[in-house]
């Protein structure tokens, strides 16, 4: 079986104990920083920072790197696109392909940025219970006047929670349908145009039916989308403020230098 990407790995490290809001803000700031940095030295520093945090989490490195794996084709593609389609001094010339030195530089930087983004995101999801993440997002959205748009942050949080909870069931459904169609001789590689609807239609139907049943079941148990209590009591500790302060100093240090 495939190992789940971006999954939560329980632990008791400092990183695990931080408030989810701290970690969400940190990932957002680090993501912003990833796209502000200019040279390879700064990219190196960010990678070092990631490794330091990863060590702090006490989790094996493969937990984070498996988040990059499904994206590897995309990363290679953007790297090659930059390499071949940037004007500049040609490294070599072969047929119509002219990889340029500037392209190599931009390509490497862009690939490194994507990898960094994925790694930082994996750091958040691996060290935080998904329901704590949604709880954190809900608390952060609460001050926003979302009511005017007809949604409440509680509804958003419930939606996120349900989406996360239903992902494994969705994969199970995909497997079931795949098996049923394969038994009737469907060959995905040979005939993708016929296979896509053969998978997508039963899947969509099933998911919509599930959603409807879930909605009825929730409403019949009194769900109204209003404020609900959460199993996660969020409180910012000293460590959270310290972590944010250290992060702020780190970001200023990198941006100024």
């Amino acid at each position: 079986m495939q190992e789940p990407v971006f999954s939560y790995v329980p632990g008791a490290s400092l990183l695990h104990r931080l408030d989810p809001r701290t970690k969400i803000v940190a990932v957002m700031l680090l993501g912003f920083l990833t796209f502000r940095i200019e040279n390879f030295a700064e990219i190196g520093v960010l990678f070092a920072f990631f490794f330091a945090l990863a060590l702090l989490s006490g989790l094996p490195m493969r937990v984070f790197f498996r988040a990059v794996k499904p994206m590897r084709l995309f990363i290679i593609f953007i790297f090659l696109a930059q390499l071949f389609f940037t004007d500049g001094r040609a490294l070599v010339s072969y047929w119509i392909l002219q990889p340029s030195l500037e392209g190599l530089e931009i390509g490497l930087k862009l690939a490194a940025r994507f990898i960094l983004l994925l790694l930082f995101a994996a750091l958040l999801t691996a060290s935080t219970d998904p329901s704590a993440i949604t709880c954190g997002i809900e608390r952060m959205l609460r001050p926003l006047p979302l009511r005017l748009l007809g949604i409440s942050s509680f509804e958003l949080a419930t939606m996120m929670n349900i989406s996360i909870a239903f992902l494994p069931l969705l994969f199970e459904r995909v497997e079931r349908t795949k098996a049923a169609q394969a038994a009737r001789g469907m060959d995905f590689v040979k005939n993708p145009f016929r296979s896509v609807p053969a998978l997508a239609i039963p899947l969509l139907r099933g998911v919509i039916r599930d959603a409807e049943e879930l909605a009825l079941a929730m409403e019949s148990r009194g769900y109204q989308g209003s404020r609900r209590t959460s199993i996660h009591e969020l409180s910012m500790q000293k460590n959270d403020w310290k972590a944010l302060l250290i992060l702020a100093l780190f970001i200023i240090f990198i941006l100024v230098l």
């Binding site: 459904r173 079931r176 349908t177 098996a179 049923a180 169609q181 038994a183 009737r184 609807p197 053969a198 997508a200 239609i201 039963p202 139907r205 099933g206």
Partner: peptide, 12 residues
């Protein structure tokens, strides 16, 4: 020939 429990999972 295989027939699974949920017939609806394969009709499209």
């Amino acid at each position: 020939g295989m027939v699974f429990q949920q017939a609806a999972d394969q009709l499209f």
